[in-house]
Structure formats: structure tokens, C-alpha cells
């Protein structure tokens, strides 16, 4: 049995699986929510957390370097 035969038989089996779908209200809610973002790009909120973490890490690094330099003097 070849890979193509396997794929074809699997496709036959796959067609036998019962269909699954969302209920109409959930589908409409998801579509409405996602549609609002079309063409807008990622939300700015997505960048806030990494920015805060970056500032915090940089401040801590600067403080640590200052402490080391102080100890070396």
C-alpha cells in the first residue's frame, strides 16, 4: 500500500466523520469581533507589556552595573 493509497483511504474515512460546527450566535460573535480588526494591525496594548518589561530590565541592569562599578572603586 502506497502513501497515496493511505491518504485516499484516510480521506474516505474523514468524510465519514460527523460534521462539527459552531452555533450560529457564537459564530456571529466571533466574526463580529474579528471583523472589527480588519486592516487595523495588532492592538497597541499588545506592545505595552513587553515595553514595561524592557524598561524594568534595562533599569535593573543599569542599577546592577552601577553597583559593581561602585564596589570596584
Amino acid at each position: 500500500m502506497t502513501q497515496d493509497d493511505d491518504a485516499a483511504t484516510l480521506a474516505e474515512l474523514g468524510r465519514e466523520l460527523p460534521g462539527i460546527d459552531l452555533d450560529a450566535s457564537s459564530a456571529a460573535r466571533i466574526a463580529r469581533r474579528a471583523r472589527q480588526g480588519v486592516g487595523r494591525g495588532p492592538s497597541l496594548v499588545r506592545f505595552v507589556e513587553p515595553a514595561i518589561a524592557g524598561v524594568f530590565a534595562a533599569s535593573y541592569l543599569a542599577w546592577a552595573i552601577a553597583r559593581v562599578l561602585e564596589a570596584l572603586r
Partner: peptide, 21 residues
């Protein structure tokens, strides 16, 4: 690419069930 909501709706209708399954 042009930001058309109608295109999004068409994609959603075309792929929603497959992806959900």
C-alpha cells in the same frame, strides 16, 4: 489586503467550519 470586511466575512464563512472541526 484592502481591508474589506466583506472579504473577511467570505473567508470566515469558507473556513470557519473546517478550522473549528
Amino acid at each position: 489586503r484592502r481591508g474589506e470586511a466583506a472579504a473577511f466575512d467570505a473567508v470566515f464563512a469558507g473556513y470557519r467550519r473546517r478550522l473549528y472541526g
